[in-house]
Each structure stands twice: as C-alpha cells, then as structure tokens.
Design a protein around this nucleic acid. Structure first.
Lengths: 152, 152
DNA sequence: CAATATGTGGGGGAAAGTGGGGAATTGTGG
DNA sequence: CCACAATTCCCCACTTTCCCCCACATATTG
C-alpha cells in the first residue's frame, strides 16, 4: 500500500500534471481522489492522500504555538497545504505558488516515498542527487546514532 | 474542517479583501459570516470565526494579569480584535488600523492555519519565508524534542 | 497490426476575483 | 439641531482564472 519508485512526468502550460495510471485506482478508493500537496524544506513538493495528510497536520497543530520553530514549520507546511482533486483525465492542477516554490518547469520527476509522493523539478532532482552522492561519500562515521543502527 | 493552503489576494483602494470562494460557504454556516480579525506578533493579521475567537479570548483572559508578558499579549490580541462581517459579495473591510499594522498594500497573501487564517503583506511574507527556509536548513539537530520526533 | 489504455494539448463556458459609482449611514463641528 | 464630510455598504460591470470536455498523439497489449 506504499508508494515507491520513480516516474518522469510533464507539467503542461496550464500547470497540470498527470498522475501515473498505476496510482490512480488506489488513490480513488483510498481517499476518493482527494489529495493534499504542500512544500518541503528541500524545495520540492509533497503529495499526500488527504487522510494521511490530516494525521501530519494534527501533529503539527499540537505543537506549542508560542514556539518560534514550531510556528515556522506550521506556516510552511500547513500554510502551503493545498487540497486538490484529480480531474476526469486523472490530472491535478498545481497552483502557481507551489510550482514556483519547487521551480517546476516542463519536465518533472515523481518519487514514491511510502505514505507520500515527492514532486521535483527534473533538473533540481538531478543536481541534488549528485550532491547527496558526493556528501554520503564524504562523511564517514559522522552519522547520528539513529542512523548508525540502521541495517539495510 | 481546518483551514489550510495559500491564496494570493488583493486589497483594493477601499481596504476590502475578497474571502476565497472555497471558504465562504463554510464560514457562513459555521459562524454566520461573523469573523474576528486581530494582530499577531509577527506583523500579520489573524482571522478567526467568531466562536473560535471566543475560545482564544477566554484563554487569554485567564492568564495571570500581574505577569507582564501576559498583559502585553492581552493588549495586543484582545485590544486589536475587531468583529467583521462579510458583505453581500463575500468581502470584508479591513479597518485601516489593522492594515497599517500589517503593512498591507495592494498585494497580500492569505494563509490557512488550522482554526484561523493569517493575512500577510505579500512582500513581508516572501522575505519572511526566505528567512525561514534558511533557518530550517541551518539548524540540524538543534530542534526541540517535540519537533525531533515529528515524522512527515 | 488492430485495439485499448495512457499521456498531452487546447477551446470555451462558468465561476470567482476586481474595481468603481452612488445611496445610505455614521460621525463631526458649528 | 443642522449641514457637511467621511465612511460603509450595495449594486453593477469588467477581467481573469478555473474546470469540464473533446481531440489527438503516443504507448501497450492481445
């Protein structure tokens, strides 16, 4: 029931993006096609089925609203969380605010990430990936504890 | 039933602001279109359905009135709280005091934040957001406990 | 190679957003 | 108490955006 894998997709002049067919049926039955798209710290977009998003939002709302970091996260994530439905052709219309945020041009990449999907501009995705590969090589032994004990 | 997402809106020469259509019906039935707008410490405006505001106000009133911070908050929030109704076209008229406080010019931004909505001057919002993105990138591992265990 | 499914593009009607004129209301000063 | 000014609110008209629908192009399958 988790999302995984990568898809090349295109965003048309109106800002529409076709959801890959293999996800559609699942999205329709699990959440009636009601999706939420928001932003991520790494300048990509996150796409959740509405029920999954509501769990996240609940956690965010519980954070103390006088805490500066907490409000910052709430404004970024909840503030950009946009409810979207698929149209009859299985496409979603990404608001221009979100497209601008992620620097989305015509060619984009859709990444399955468990409960959610990530939407990247293709160019950004490629350069980011190169950087990660390089940095993973670089810092040996500097991993936080929780990562150290991870066995793949 | 929570507010989320972002809208670009414009404030006209008379200080009026159109409430996005998708919120209108909800506001009419949940509170008869009776809203309360007040100020926030971050120089934006907060907009609540009247019943939601009354809960907040109650909490504020309960704060110890000898505490300096508490009185400060009470004066800011309760002091600026203004009751407003939507007009026949679904617009609200923002008092000039509040517009000045938030530095609202023609282009503004409306941010859903759970029980409330935030109203920002567009320029202020953009510069603030850049700062947040930078600070979120910067402090890894310095997050408060409650944020650390947040998995998105 | 036909036949069906998927991806892509665009036209057009409906709805929402925007702006301004003018009547009604409120407030102010004489 | 009245006259004048300022503000608020309702209405109408224009512009922009959104969304539904159709058409074609490309890919997949039998």
């Amino acid at each position: 029931m988790n999302f995984r894998g990568i898809n090349n997709i295109s965003v048309d002049a109106k800002g529409r993006m076709a959801v890959p067919a293999r996800y559609r049926e699942r999205l329709l039955e699990s959440c009636g096609g009601h999706l939420v798209v928001t932003v991520d710290r790494d300048y990509c977009l996150l796409m959740y089925p509405l029920p999954e998003w509501e769990i996240i939002e609940e956690k965010l709302n519980r954070l103390p609203s006088l805490n500066k970091q907490a409000r910052l996260l709430q404004r970024l994530l909840i503030g950009h969380a946009t409810e979207l439905d698929m149209d009859a052709q299985g496409r979603i219309l990404l608001p221009s605010v979100l497209r601008d945020f992620a620097g989305l041009k015509k060619k984009a990449v859709l990444i399955g990430q468990g409960k959610k999907l990530e939407i990247w501009d293709e160019e950004t995705w490629n350069t980011s990936q190169e950087e990660w590969m390089a940095s993973v090589q670089a810092d040996d032994g500097e991993l936080p504890l929780s990562l150290e004990e991870l066995s793949l």
